[in-house]
Amino acid sequence: MDPSGVFPTSYRSDRRLIRTRWQALVLALFMVLLLAAPYMVSGRIIAILNMMQISAVIAVGLQICTGYAGQINLGQAAFMGVGAYTASILASKTGLTFLLTIPLAGLSAALFGFLFGLTAARIKGFYLALTTIAAQFLFHFAVLNLPSTWMGGSNGITVPPAELFGLRLVSETAQFYMNLVVATIMIAGAFGIVRSRFGRAFVAVRDDDVAAGIMGINVAATKANAFLIGAFYAGVGGALWAYLIRFVGVDQFTLFHSIFFVAMIIVGGMGSIVGALIGVFTIRIIQEIIATVGPNIADSVSFLGGDIVFAGMNVVLGGVIALFMILEPKGLMHRWNILKSSYRIWPFPY
């Protein structure tokens, strides 16, 4: 809902993303802050920001697939893995520049996602979620059982650093800017996709796929497209991940990681790009807190054994998913919108 006095006078202005001067100002300030971040905060925080940017790309893809098109996707980590492996194989075997490997990684992941999305021609609902779980298992199987000269088997692949004009992008700061540029392009693209005719078709299919079909939308193709776009984002994120960690292994892309991404969009709010970003921020902060305090707790409480960080992460994120589904299924974004509209119309109730 727009603030008082702001009303569109043409279709073009009705479609605008930035509707008030205040919003433009805040956005500009936010981008300036991000650009200046490496000079303002310490290395540890830059590392966290790097992870957040990569997760943001992947979670936004999942948001398009699940939040907008309504297709439950429990294989986002596998799609990410396909992208990461494509990028690392291309980079280590052929020495292609990252300017090419990142889009190619996205494309190969998109192809993989599209293949599984094609099953949408026959099935729907949580049956579709099952095919994405199958994607997860088949990805593992393929990596571990194909000849190890292809995909490194269980040893993984070491990735050479990204290079631009002879500069090696190895420092966290350099990678931060690379991630920032890619993430900005991808997220801006996501805003474009969701208000295009494809995005409107996604929403129609999500709300009622039978009705959408009657209105003339090709439902199966729309669902397959949703998987294609979601997997493309995952592939690009996977490529960034490969360049950040400089090593890919099959353990980095499990069903659990897929569920972490699902947790991000549920917490942030389904059906909102900004919501996905809020979700990424919240979940990554939670993960960071657990990773920091987990070992301390393990030291003081003796009966809690083993891998407390991973276990604690699972408990907290599983609990967060369940709590949000029960208490606030629309996520934090919905709360924010309620707050926003209430201060805009203050002091009137509606």
Binding site: I72, A129, A263, A311, N314, V315, G318, I321, M325
Partner: peptide
């Protein structure tokens, strides 16, 4: 379905803890 997905990792984590 999403709640059972949440349960999946919640219970796994509890068992591990």
């Amino acid at each position: 379905v999403m709640v059972t997905v949440g349960l999946l990792i919640l219970l796994r984590g509890l068992v591990l803890l």
